[in-house]
Design a protein around this nucleic acid. Sequence first.
DNA 1: TTCTGTGAACGGATTCACAGCA
DNA 2: TGCTGTGAATCCGTTCACAGAA
Lengths: 214, 214
Amino acid sequence: MPRMGNQVARDVPGVVIQRLPLYLQALRHIDGTGVEVVSSQELGDQLQFTPAQIRKDLSYFGRFGKQGRGYNVKRLHSELRRILGLNQQWNLALVGVGRLGRAILGYEGFAPRGFKVVAAFDADPTQIGKKVANITVQAMSELQATVRQHGIQICIVAVPPTEAQAALETLVKAGVKAVLNYAPWAGRVPNGMHLREVDPVLFLQSMTYYLKPS
Amino acid sequence: MPRMGNQVARDVPGVVIQRLPLYLQALRHIDGTGVEVVSSQELGDQLQFTPAQIRKDLSYFGRFGKQGRGYNVKRLHSELRRILGLNQQWNLALVGVGRLGRAILGYEGFAPRGFKVVAAFDADPTQIGKKVANITVQAMSELQATVRQHGIQICIVAVPPTEAQAALETLVKAGVKAVLNYAPWAGRVPNGMHLREVDPVLFLQSMTYYLKPS
DNA sequence: TTCTGTGAACGGATTCACAGCA
DNA sequence: TGCTGTGAATCCGTTCACAGAA
């Protein structure tokens, strides 16, 4: 099991990584209440996780707690930020400036948490050159150059389903390493590229299974 | 392991249920190409799942394939829709009509897939009575009555984090059974209520782990 | 005493491998 | 022969339970 000298622990289960941002959320909240130390029990109550799971998750990355006490809230928060690579701003590019894409460009939830959309692309020639939320829409052919120039590693895809696979392939070619996909299309993507499906309808469609027909 | 006489198979792993909407997406696409039969292999190629996983997933619900042939695309699509309860329209309510909430009200991706936002609520008195996308914003105090009247079982939460827990509690009291939560707040929710976190920043924050700092 | 960190045990999900049907 | 459906085997994540530090 991964012991790390300082920084990089490999083969941490993906599901653990996906929980870390939730820990961050909870810690931020707890910090806001002025509490300085939390136990895995208390953190678990907050998030509805078992204390054992929290201790095990954290143990992949180091020893952050004090026996008999718990975890220092600010310290753990800052360690997790470091582990997730959140001590820097991340530049994003958006592909697709239809209604959904425009809403994403206008979303004020990214910037305060360190993500900034700095470029936008569309396949539709009539959109190119238009300014949306202070960003000039560019042609897809410019994507690779712009992405390199701004050091963009993450893109958001918000195109119609018929264009999704083509958009993904452009991103792969441009060397983009992570994609947040709003398109209703589960894209195929080469090994090593990180793709998260965030089409909200997917979430709704799985919840209806548990509901009574009405 | 669940054999089902006709309809209800219990204790299907949640992770299986969450894959079914992806199967639906892939089948819809395949159907659009005119292909009439798919093997688990082909469906798996499309979605980057193993064929064995697909066969096992489907076997929780019945026997939909023909040995030596594969699955009839239209038939499987319609079976999965039935299993997920997607043969009806689902009415949704939105809580929170700030910028994000308004974008959600304006999103045209719900209706064509059977979900319709029919009511909107906000805690801010200055918003109440305003019309947004043809829907009149109501006070939170009206939520329970409206939800019952429209048979709403699913709500979308798009409020600031400080108000998220209160909003969730109102929904619990109103008997809402499923929540799509856009608020950056991992809510605590009673057993039996279905909550999906869709704050996009959570997804971004877990992907940065795999990226190089820039 | 309290609560962390962690091997060991457990349980659940994925994959294997093959029997059986078309 | 080709591909499904499915028990058995495997893999992997969660939980247990306890040794050890404060």
